[in-house]
């Protein structure tokens, strides 16, 4: 390799590094607001992957485009290129570097996962486990701070949340900010998924089983809860609001809700099903939506 080649490669790599670092910073902007402690960890990891990914993609694309623009010949040119069959050193390098890179990325992801300490789902493969027992090993150490427990019920197609201490039932999920939250989630008939994009967290909810899930909201605001595991006809509108608020307003809300009588909640799936005037093209018989749950606190929006 002569000096010119080395300088050329050096300059190319420098430009690539600068561009990838820029992409890595942009990556934060491709994500929703960070509303949990876990979301910050995930965003940092995503930014790292984006940086490395951009380096790989731009690096390869640059070489390919450079070759296309400098090495193209007329289709009537019948000459051949040099007969290069391979290069053992080069092939070892481009096997070893990706190998090290994926070990690094897997290790880094593993570390992030441990820090998140999402209280994992129970080991559903082993059927002898009792529902609600045996969290995964990675969630072992914490558990000193107080935890706010909320029961989550998913059915086709409605979310309901029950606060065990007060007995309040709500169609919005209210959570105090900066407190560890533990959800005890159950589904009625089919698998649903608990997913709040601003929390970056997702967990399938199995029918007839309690799945525990933990996280810490850190930012007040109203967020969207989606069903993330396809659950049938009205899957798209099985949503709920998640209200993260200060501990004071959270307690106030609980107290005022506890004083309310239970009334049927508003339920988009049920109203769409019973609205006979709604006419769209085609369609077949569907599983009927469950009747709207009775709640003390109806949705605010």
């Amino acid at each position: 390799m002569n000096l010119k080649t080395i300088i050329g490669i050096g300059a190319y790599v420098a430009v690539l590094i600068a561009a990838s670092l820029w992409v890595g910073q942009q990556a934060y902007g491709w994500l929703p607001p960070q509303a949990t402690a876990e979301s910050m960890l995930i965003d940092d990891l995503f930014s790292l992957f984006s940086t490395i990914g951009a380096f790989v993609l731009l690096g390869i694309a640059g070489v390919v485009l450079y070759t296309v623009f400098t090495q193209s010949v007329s289709r009537f040119d019948t000459s051949d290129g040099p007969h290069m069959e391979g290069n053992i050193k080069l092939e070892i390098v481009w096997t070893a570097i990706p190998l090290l890179l994926v070990f690094f990325l897997a290790g880094y992801s593993y570390q992030t996962y441990q820090q998140m300490a999402v209280r994992g789902p129970m080991d559903l493969v082993h059927l002898h486990h009792l529902p609600g027992s045996t969290p995964t090993a990675y969630a072992a150490e914490m558990e000193t701070e107080p935890v706010e427990e909320v029961e989550v019920y998913a059915k086709q197609w409605a979310w309901t949340f029950r606060y065990p201490d007060t007995g309040v039932v709500s169609s919005d999920l209210h959570l105090p900010v900066n407190r560890r939250i533990r959800l005890l989630m159950t589904a009625d008939e089919v698998i649903h998924g608990f997913y709040v994009p601003a929390f970056r967290l997702k967990q399938d909810i199995m029918p007839k089983r309690v799945t525990e899930f933990e996280f810490t909201p850190i930012r007040e605001g109203t967020y969207r809860l989606n069903d993330s595991q396809f659950s049938g006809t009205y899957f798209a509108i099985m949503k709920a609001n998640v209200v993260v608020e200060s501990p004071e307003s959270y307690r106030q809300w609980l107290a005022s809700a506890a004083a309310q009588p239970a009334v049927p909640a508003e339920n988009p799936a049920y109203s769409e099903y019973t609205n006979k005037r709604l006419k769209r093209f085609g369609g077949w018989k569907t599983v009927e939506p469950a009747t709207p749950p009775l709640v003390n606190a109806i949705s605010e929006s």
Partner: peptide, 19 residues
Amino acid sequence: GVTGVMLASVPIDIHVNNT
């Protein structure tokens, strides 16, 4: 391939899985 490696990472996948 780049997005595939992102999806392989458990923490990132927990966010973007099924999206």
